[in-house]
Simulated assay, not measured.
Amino acid sequence: MSVLIEVASARLLEDEGTLRVCGKVNFEGAAEMAEAGREWLEERTPGSPVCLDLSEVEHVSSAALTMMLEWARTMRRAGLSLNSIKLSPPLWQLTELAGLDDLLPSTCARA
């Protein structure tokens, strides 16, 4: 596991095909995390399976949703296969509140 970026009180890690987010994802640093994740995704081989693990996200804002949507667009453009998404309870709640839960794949799980 290696740290891709650490901003404010959040970290973005990569671990064998998994992008893992830990900490508080808010407007301070979310754009940098989205960019670092996008770059990592673009380096993957087309068809590669990818997992998103946001189960350790403690505090969220709409910036976290924007970051996830950016990664989803990048995965589609890069031809990557989304294996699973794990969301923390606060992120799941925000996703439902925003009406985005219907857009999540069936592999999405609450942490």
Rank of each mutant, 00 (worst) to 15 (best):
Trp92Cys: 04
Thr18Ser: 09
Ala34Met: 08
Asp101Gly: 01
Gly99Ile: 00
Arg44Pro: 00
Glu14Asp: 14
Met68Cys: 09
Met68Arg: 03
Ser9Ile: 01
Leu41Ser: 09
Ala34Gly: 14
Gly99Pro: 03
Glu70Phe: 00
Gly23Ile: 10
Ala34Arg: 12
Asn83Ile: 00
Pro89Glu: 14
Ser84Ala: 15
Pro46Glu: 06
Leu91Thr: 08
Glu42Phe: 05
Glu43Arg: 15
Ala63Phe: 12
Asp101Glu: 15
Arg20Met: 03
Met68Tyr: 05
Leu94Phe: 13
Leu94Ile: 14
Gly17Met: 06
Gly17Cys: 08
Thr18Gly: 00
Ile5Arg: 15
Met33Gly: 04
Gly23Arg: 02
Thr107Pro: 01
Val21Glu: 05
Ala31Gly: 11
Arg110Asp: 03
Cys51Arg: 14
Asp102Val: 08
Glu43Met: 11
Glu96Ser: 11
Ser81Asp: 07
Gln93Arg: 15
Thr107Asn: 01
Ser9Gly: 05
Val3Leu: 12
Met1Trp: 01
Glu16Trp: 01
Glu16Pro: 00
Leu4Thr: 09
Asp102Tyr: 04
Asn26Met: 07
Leu4Lys: 11
Ala109Gln: 15
Trp92Pro: 00
Gly79Ser: 05
Ser48Val: 00
Leu65Tyr: 11
Ala10Gly: 10
Pro89Asp: 11
Ala72Arg: 14
Ala10Ser: 15
Asp101Lys: 03
Glu58Gln: 15
Ala63Met: 10
Leu19Lys: 08
Val57Pro: 10
Leu52Gln: 01
Glu70Cys: 09
Trp40Leu: 04
Ser48His: 09
Ile5Trp: 01
Pro49Lys: 09
Cys51Leu: 06
Ser106Pro: 00
Thr74Trp: 10
Ala78Arg: 15
Ala34Cys: 03
Ser61Trp: 02
Glu14Trp: 07
Ala72Cys: 01
Val7Asn: 05
Glu16Ser: 13
Ser9Tyr: 05
Leu41Lys: 13
Ser88Thr: 05
Met33Arg: 04
Glu39Phe: 01
Gly79Thr: 06
Asp15Lys: 14
Arg77Ile: 09
Gln93Gly: 08
Glu28Arg: 14
Ser62Trp: 04
Asp15Met: 05
Ala109Asp: 07
Gln93Phe: 05
Glu56Thr: 10
Lys24Asp: 15
Pro49Ile: 08
Arg44Thr: 10
Gln93Ile: 02
Gly79Cys: 07
Gly47Glu: 11
Val25Gln: 06
Leu103Asn: 03
Leu13Gly: 01
